[in-house]
Simulated assay, not measured.
Amino acid sequence: MVLVTGGTGLVGSHLLLKLAMQNVPVRAIYRSVEKLEQVKKTFSYYTTNVTALYDKIDWVQGDILDIPSLDDAFQNVTHVYHCAALISFSPSDFNILDRVNREGTANIVNMCIAKNVQKLCYVSTIGTIGRTSTSLAADEETEFNRQFANPYAITKHLAEMEVWRGAQEQIQVVIINPGVILGPGYWENGSGSFFKTAHKNYSYYPPGGSGFVAVADVTAIMVQLMNTDIHGERYIVVASNNTYKEVLEMISRAMNKKAPYKKLQPWQLQIGKYLDLLRHLLTGKPRTITHSTIHGLLHPTTFDSSKIIKTLDYTFEPLENSITFSSRIFMKEHAE
């Protein structure tokens, strides 16, 4: 039996679809019934056989912070895909990020040890890959530095340390460090904001860029790694390094919208940071523009995926293919 945590998220739902289509016995953890509807919707983007595939999954209600529910979920499990995480870049959310991302991962690792799980695949982030001070691309050996890291990256780095602890306890582990993951259906958070931004015809785009990858590539690589004898390794999973301007232009083109053409200047970002702080103080909503955010925008890093390409002889899907597919779904769901 294969267990998937975070099965109602972007990566988890796509992974479940892939495993169900391959007839892999799979169990998934969910927290609320409402989130299960998004999984069905995600399945519907790719198949008309939604109900049959969805019913192949053994759904267990639980939480990675709730040990008794994990004990139920881990019964007869041999392989675990740990996709569950909390994403926030707001310093005020550090404690809850630490609980979910570090402590939650520690719980998963402890259950893997206790239940003699054969292999664990952990979905981390390129945020835990160190930044380079030169034009050279960062790779898996580039040392992580907390100085300009956001709270999410820090807690995911701590979570990776828990996974490596599991490796020392004889659990076979692999870690993937995907870039910004693009895919359909989760428009209200994460990379979904790119599609919402392009749809609104904003004139401004942020400076900098990042590594990007289609969700289909992420899940394909996860499954391939789990089906090999490879363990004790981590892999950057980035299809291409792009500026945010380039990505927004691709989405705008796919939506037949006007692309943003004005780059936000450093002084505008600084003003935005203080306005964002004021909004946070007045409303309690998480901050989105912080010191670390601005530093990342003004000092972008490129990422080297050659290790995973060589290991699996893997060819990434062109990013524009995924963007076009996702944009069409977005437009259909947001038809005026």
Score class of each variant (00 low, 15 high):
10 L>M: 14
216 A>S: 04
28 A>E: 09
2 V>F: 03
101 N>C: 06
109 V>T: 10
264 L>C: 12
184 P>S: 08
82 H>N: 08
1 M>W: 00
220 A>T: 13
7 G>S: 07
221 I>A: 08
136 L>I: 15
77 V>F: 00
264 L>M: 13
266 P>D: 03
49 N>V: 10
324 T>K: 05
164 W>C: 07
174 V>T: 11
251 I>V: 09
291 H>G: 02
152 Y>T: 13
278 L>G: 04
194 F>Y: 08
286 P>R: 06
161 M>E: 07
58 D>N: 01
77 V>S: 00
55 D>F: 00
210 S>E: 07
272 G>D: 11
240 S>Y: 11
317 E>M: 14
274 Y>D: 00
308 I>K: 03
70 L>T: 12
172 Q>R: 15
328 R>E: 05
115 K>C: 03
14 H>W: 12
274 Y>R: 02
241 N>E: 07
191 S>A: 07
114 A>T: 08
227 N>I: 06
270 Q>C: 06
14 H>F: 06
112 C>T: 02
320 E>F: 03
281 L>F: 04
99 R>I: 10
23 N>T: 04
251 I>L: 10
222 M>I: 11
289 I>W: 06
150 N>C: 00
122 Y>E: 12
65 L>G: 13
138 A>S: 00
191 S>Q: 05
304 D>V: 03
89 F>K: 09
224 Q>V: 03
84 A>R: 13
182 L>E: 11
227 N>W: 07
22 Q>Y: 02
206 P>D: 06
125 T>G: 15
270 Q>D: 08
122 Y>L: 12
228 T>Y: 04
50 V>M: 14
254 A>F: 10
137 A>G: 02
151 P>H: 09
273 K>V: 00
46 Y>W: 15
269 L>Q: 10
326 S>T: 14
293 T>R: 01
98 D>M: 12
249 E>Y: 07
298 L>F: 03
122 Y>T: 13
230 I>Q: 02
75 Q>R: 11
36 L>S: 01
